[in-house]
Amino acid sequence: MHKHDLGQAARKFAKVCEILEKYDYKSDKLVPILQAVQEEYRYLPEDVLAFIATTLDISPARIYGVATFYSHFALEPKGKYVVRVCDGTACHVKGSNPLLSEIRNRLNLPKGKTTTPDLLFTLETVSCLGACGIAPVVVVNEEVHPLMTPVKQLR
């Protein structure tokens, strides 16, 4: 590899090394490690996963298994704004479905996709946010919007 490329690669993995350092290079801390990586990159890039596998001396298959098992982890980049619609029992009973399709329409999301092509919005559903008293609930990034109706404007 060219010297310049090496420098770039080192820079790219510097953050990951920091995270691994923090968790003592322990493979049983894999879930918190991946959480920290996702917070940094907004998703889990494949080369970073491979790097972690080599460093922790576990197989890439195991990391892939963990990364795909938990719904929080994303293998594709997420949008700048993550819109999460709660579809728990209370929200469902109070009409989260019409809400979801309205947001889909407004974002003009292509079928089968959850992120807009300009990487601005990601639309997700979550099983319950534990805020059932103010159902239906929509969370944009960390901001909670209670008692939503399909008409209430979203940003």
């Binding site: 322990k26 049983d28 801390k29 894999l30 963990v66 098992f69 938990y70 719904s71 982890f73 979550v126």
Partner: peptide
């Protein structure tokens, strides 16, 4: 990390073990 089954005790322990 967003898995309902982790509320089950043996699954929860597996999750802590990475």
């Amino acid at each position: 990390a967003g898995a309902f089954v982790c509320g089950e005790e043996t699954a929860l322990m597996a999750s802590i073990e990475g």
